[in-house]
């Protein structure tokens, strides 16, 4: 769907897709709403989401249409929302697993993807290349093995942004 907005190129000073503050290697949560809420708190704290409740409603509306869990332990709660300021990824690793509705069981890698409602196409391209990396087993294994939030950030920047 085209947005009607002219494509914009992110300036070099544009906030990064992910920072160490947006990574939680010991994510806990009884269900997907709790896990999503916990990652969302980080987005709010970093100013990437202006209205937590509004964004959560958009994420839930998306989950209602079809669960976002993918086989291989992946959950991808996400939404395009007017309450998002910058395309952002928050990442959580949850050893206990959280059910995101995938057919093969709970997810241990959770990616909360927040996209601005009127984002230009360049913004969306960053998120599309992130999504493309997610299907690669090597990327998933590396995320499972990452020892620190900084290592996760470095990995995402290398794999997704090629830098």
């Amino acid at each position: 769907m085209t947005t009607g907005f002219p494509p914009t190129t992110p300036s070099p000073s544009a906030p990064a897709l992910i920072t160490a503050d947006l990574v939680d290697l010991d994510l806990t949560g009884a269900d997907r709403h709790e896990a999503t809420g916990s990652l969302l708190a980080r987005l709010v704290k970093q100013g990437r989401v202006t209205d937590a409740e509004g964004f959560l409603a958009d994420v839930r509306a998306r989950e209602e249409q079809m669960p976002t869990g993918i086989e291989g332990g992946i959950g991808i709660p996400h939404a395009r929302s007017e309450h998002v300021t910058e395309p952002t990824l928050a990442f959580g690793r949850c050893t206990a697993g959280v059910d995101f509705g995938a057919a093969d069981g709970p997810a241990d890698l959770i990616f909360l993807i927040a996209a601005p409602a009127g984002g230009g196409q360049e913004h969306m391209k960053v998120l599309s290349s992130l999504a493309r990396r997610l299907v690669h087993q090597s990327f998933r294994d590396a995320l499972r093995a990452a020892s620190s939030p900084d290592a996760v950030v470095e990995l995402v920047q290398k794999e997704v942004l090629g830098r």
Partner: peptide
């Protein structure tokens, strides 16, 4: 939504 599953 057109930001995740489409590209995956």
């Amino acid at each position: 939504t057109g930001i995740a599953h489409t590209y995956m």
